[in-house]
Amino acid sequence: MSKLVTTGLTKAFSGLVAVNDVSFTMEEGEILGIIGPNGAGKTTFIHLVSGILMPSSGRVEFKGKDITYMPAHERSRLGIARTYQLIHPLENLKVIENVMIGAVFSRGKSLKEARRSAEAICAELGLERLERDTAQLSILEIKKMEIARALANEPEVLFLDEVMAGLNSDETLQLIATVKRIALERKMAVGVVEHVMGVIRELTQRVIVLEAGELIAEGPYETVSKNPRVIEAYLGGAA
């Protein structure tokens, strides 16, 4: 059974249709790229799937269960986690507490157990000195912390919204390798939004392309990147 299915998912903000009739599926163990020009509706789409926004119409299913209007905190308990394009550190909590929080509230672990699993996840990501304040972290460390927080939910479906943005190429390569390894180990379905096409090529088996809220292409990166409609969406319709 597919992990995640959307059917005709649509979100309109008083006239502006940000996501328009998008139907797609995500399978276990799959890393899916979600690409498209700025304003294509990628982030809105993730908001709809993770429950931060409610759709205008359409349907979201998680492992066959209808979750279209389920609140975000319940979805995270069910197994859908995500990071944010704009970083969201909890600045009055220590790094370790930032990561623990998903384990405590999504998985219902005790503080002690949650701390232990958060430490394990941070170790896996190479995030150290966990008693620090978030203000002391570098941008790479904050990104890792946000991934760690999402992983602490022990998700089956994970969305990474431009986590590589702002990192240099070494850091990006390192993080790609880590994400790939963890996704494989945990058999997660991972949705990756990125503007850096190199990342998409390295990381994903399949790509969906959004333009003006609509799904215009789907398939392996090599095929999709040669699709004339996709090229037009990115480069404009002048040709």
């Binding site: 975000a72 905190h73 909890l90 929080i101 998903g102 509230f105 927080r149 939910n153």
Partner: peptide, 11 residues
């Protein structure tokens, strides 16, 4: 600190 993060973490 951040209600959106809190919700995404199951709070």
């Amino acid at each position: 600190n951040d209600e959106t993060s809190a919700r995404s973490s199951g709070v």
